[in-house]
């Protein structure tokens, strides 16, 4: 799905946070998960994970995998969860406002 890069940048963080909410994921898994929703350069997700980890919204731990070296799993911390909820609320509020605005302008056009 094509998406304006400006939209993408803002929403990517929220999508990443929501993806990890249900269960802990390792980098590649997360990249595939996010790619389902947003068509994003896969390389750009790792810096985001790094930043969220540096800000203590994520915790990481290593876990053995059946193939290859151990994988680094990302776990959403409590502060990450709060941050995610705030971000989600902001997004919903913003989304509703924009939708309302679009509808109003459309009815105005008629």
């Amino acid at each position: 799905m094509y998406l304006n890069p400006q939209f993408k940048k803002g929403i990517l963080e929220l999508v990443v946070l929501i993806s990890v909410t249900g269960r802990d994921m390792y980098g590649y898994e997360l990249v595939s998960e996010v790619s389902k929703v947003i068509d994003v350069n896969e390389g750009t997700i790792y810096p985001l994970l790094k930043r969220l980890t540096n800000e203590h919204y994520f915790e990481t731990y290593l876990k053995e995998s059946t193939e290859g070296p151990p994988r680094k799993y990302y776990h959403l911390t409590l502060s990450g969860k709060i941050y995610k909820d705030n971000l989600k609320a902001e997004w919903e509020q913003f989304y509703n406002k924009v939708e309302k605005f679009i509808k109003e302008s459309e009815s105005g056009d008629d």
Partner: peptide, 17 residues
């Protein structure tokens, strides 16, 4: 190549620090 433009995400990594 699937990772996208290297310089773009290197810049983002650096900004994360």
């Amino acid at each position: 190549a699937s990772l996208g433009d290297i310089d773009t995400f290197v810049d983002e990594i650096l900004m994360a620090y």
